[in-house]
Amino acid sequence: MAAQAPQFEESEMSSAEGYAMIRWDHPDESVDAQFQLVVLGPDSLRMTYETPEQSTFLSGLSNGDYELRVRHRSDSSDEWEQWSQPMTLEVEHHPLGLAFALFVAGGIMFLSIVIFLIRHANDALEVENGAV
């Protein structure tokens, strides 16, 4: 009898950062297993990972739709069981305009703090001299 395939925790995911945590279940918890995850993406991208864990973290993905499948084999066997149902991961990064706006805002905040501290660098003298 063929073993059941693992199932992804979510069948669809989206990411605005190009990274995602992918989790799946173990069809037979009583047996130690290896899992094989295949990621298919735009421009014929194909990545394969093998792991004894039930999760993998993917990052650095460009905009586009990705299809993921996972299968397993028990540690005592060389044969992989059937593939899981696919899950889709949609990557659409934040707009660059928003990123630049926040970058500039952060830069202004940082410079303001530096300038503030430089301007007040000698304020300690005020205390030492007893002025309040």
Partner: peptide
């Protein structure tokens, strides 16, 4: 395989710096 990790125009990363 992970082109965004090297990309200068990586929106979330640009936001994260400051």
């Amino acid at each position: 395989h992970r082109p965004e990790l090297l990309r200068v125009l990586f929106p979330a990363a640009i936001m994260a710096v400051f």
